[in-house]
Amino acid sequence: MATKETWRPRMALLIAHVAGMIDLVALPVWISTLITEYHFDPQQAGAMVTLFLVGTVAASLLFAPRINDFNGRIVTTVSLALAATAWAAATQQTQFIPMAMCHAAAGFTAGTALSFTHGTIGRSLNPHRLFAMAGAAIGIFGTVFLGMVPKLVATHGREMVFLVFCGLMILASLTSLLAFPKPTLAHDPVAAAGGQKLSRAVWAGIIGVSLMAVTQSMVFGFYQEIGIGHGFSMDAIAGVLIALGIVALFPGPIAGFLEKSLSAEKVVLAGPVFQAVFALTITLSSAFLPYAISGPLFVVTMVFTHTFAFGLLSRLDKSGRAVAATPAMLMTGAAIGPILGGTLIKMSGYTAIGFAACVCATLAFLAFSRVRASQHPVTAAGE
Results as ranks from 00 to 15, higher is better:
residue 195 G to P: 03
residue 109 T to A: 09
residue 200 R to H: 08
residue 126 N to W: 06
residue 129 R to G: 03
residue 127 P to H: 02
residue 194 G to M: 00
residue 141 F to Q: 05
residue 112 T to F: 09
residue 192 A to V: 11
residue 162 F to A: 03
residue 167 G to K: 07
residue 172 A to Y: 09
residue 167 G to I: 10
residue 169 M to C: 12
residue 125 L to C: 13
residue 120 T to I: 11
residue 138 I to Q: 08
residue 125 L to M: 15
residue 124 S to W: 09
residue 203 W to T: 03
residue 201 A to R: 06
residue 198 L to F: 13
residue 195 G to T: 04
residue 125 L to W: 07
residue 185 L to F: 11
residue 185 L to A: 14
residue 114 L to K: 06
residue 165 F to P: 05
residue 153 V to H: 00
residue 142 G to C: 13
residue 116 F to L: 09
residue 130 L to K: 06
residue 190 V to E: 14
residue 172 A to V: 13
residue 186 A to N: 05
residue 115 S to K: 08
residue 176 S to E: 11
residue 128 H to F: 08
residue 183 P to W: 09
residue 113 A to W: 07
residue 158 R to A: 14
residue 175 T to L: 09
residue 171 L to T: 02
residue 135 G to Y: 05
residue 189 P to N: 08
residue 125 L to N: 15
residue 114 L to R: 05
residue 201 A to H: 02
residue 163 L to K: 04
residue 178 L to Q: 04
residue 201 A to P: 05
residue 189 P to A: 11
residue 193 A to I: 12
residue 110 A to L: 06
residue 136 A to T: 15
residue 123 R to P: 07
residue 166 C to D: 03
residue 193 A to W: 12
residue 131 F to C: 07
residue 187 H to N: 15
residue 180 F to K: 05
residue 121 I to S: 09
residue 136 A to V: 10
residue 112 T to E: 12
residue 193 A to K: 12
residue 187 H to E: 15
residue 184 T to E: 15
residue 170 I to C: 14
residue 148 M to L: 15
residue 108 F to E: 10
residue 179 A to K: 10
residue 155 T to E: 00
residue 167 G to T: 06
residue 182 K to W: 13
residue 183 P to R: 07
residue 125 L to E: 15
residue 201 A to C: 05
residue 117 T to K: 00
residue 183 P to V: 06
residue 128 H to T: 05
residue 119 G to H: 08
residue 110 A to C: 07
residue 164 V to D: 02
residue 165 F to K: 07
residue 110 A to M: 09
residue 144 V to D: 01
residue 140 I to F: 15
residue 181 P to F: 15
residue 111 G to T: 11
residue 178 L to A: 10
residue 131 F to H: 14
residue 196 Q to P: 01
residue 163 L to I: 05
residue 135 G to Q: 08
residue 192 A to P: 06
residue 126 N to G: 09
residue 108 F to H: 10
residue 132 A to C: 10
